[in-house]
């Protein structure tokens, strides 16, 4: 049996339903909520603030420090051991590198901008959801950014090239699966995150990236709308649809 139709009836280039809000955490300097299908990410930005330990300070510009964390019962499988692990450390690092090209921290020497990404519920594509949430939160924190970074995963399930894989597709057993998370900066047409897990040919990869870019443009619009909506509702009541 081949995978010809997606299990949730989506078209190959279609993402899951996306919902985004800005300013959800009052105590943070900037914050955002980003939901794609069943994957939920919250991002909170604190800073620019004093950086300790002091040896990490950079006198020429501010430092961006991201922290990605999956909550213990967020996944569909076993409980995730709480706290940092190899995987979360790597994802924190790639998130930082995905966002750094757009953000200008030259006004904040020796300071740090902290980004905390929390995932209360995950169904694959969590690093992409985290990057989307983080870039809304950073803009909400009033930092200077060239553009918002949008991210989505693309990949191959059996023989089909698809956008935004969920866990069921990632765990497809009866054929080869490739998962390629990408982060895209539309203002400069640059890709700031490209990872790959699985097997895919060069042609298929290029096709997937093109599909991913198109999906990212749509996500970018949703991110911008989330930021604008924050100020169209003066009572700060963001929970209503």
């Amino acid at each position: 049996m081949t995978y010809e139709k997606r299990h949730d009836q989506r078209r190959p280039e279609e993402t899951r339903v996306i919902e985004a809000k800005a300013g959800v955490i009052p105590n943070a300097d900037g914050s955002a909520y980003f939901k794609i299908g069943n994957t939920v990410a919250y991002a909170a930005v604190y800073g620019p603030r004093d950086l300790h330990p002091k040896f990490m300070q950079d006198p020429s510009k501010g430092v961006l420090r991201c922290n990605y964390n999956m909550m213990p019962f967020s996944g569909m499988g076993d409980r995730v051991r709480p706290g940092a692990n190899r995987r979360s450390k790597e994802i924190s690092m790639v998130t930082e590198k995905a966002i750094l090209p757009v953000i200008d921290l030259s006004d904040y020497p020796n300071a740090v901008v902290d980004v905390f990404i929390e995932l209360p519920q995950t169904d694959a594509g969590s690093r992409c959801a985290g990057i989307c949430a983080a870039s809304i939160a950073l803009a909400d924190a009033g930092l200077s950014m060239k553009d918002l970074v949008s991210a989505v995963s693309v990949g191959k399930v059996d023989k089909m090239i698809v956008v935004d894989l969920d866990y069921e597709e990632e765990a497809y057993d009866d054929g080869p699966v490739a998962d390629v998370p990408i982060a895209y900066i539309s203002a400069t047409d640059e890709i700031s995150l490209l990872q790959m897990d699985g097997e895919i040919t060069k042609e298929e990869l290029m096709k997937g990236i093109e599909m991913g870019k198109k999906a990212c443009l749509k996500i970018n619009e949703i991110q911008k709308k989330a930021l604008k909506d924050r100020f169209n509702n003066p009572n700060g009541d963001h929970n209503e649809q």
Binding site: D29, G30, G47, P48, R49, D104, D107, Y108, A139, D140, A141, G142, L143, S144, M145, K146, D147, A187, L227, F231
Partner: peptide
Amino acid sequence: IIANRLGIADIQGRALKIIPLSGRYI
């Protein structure tokens, strides 16, 4: 001309600037 901050657009003749709505004190 592209915005690089979240804020309110302020048009003064030919000059475009943004009045920020959020951010820490500098």
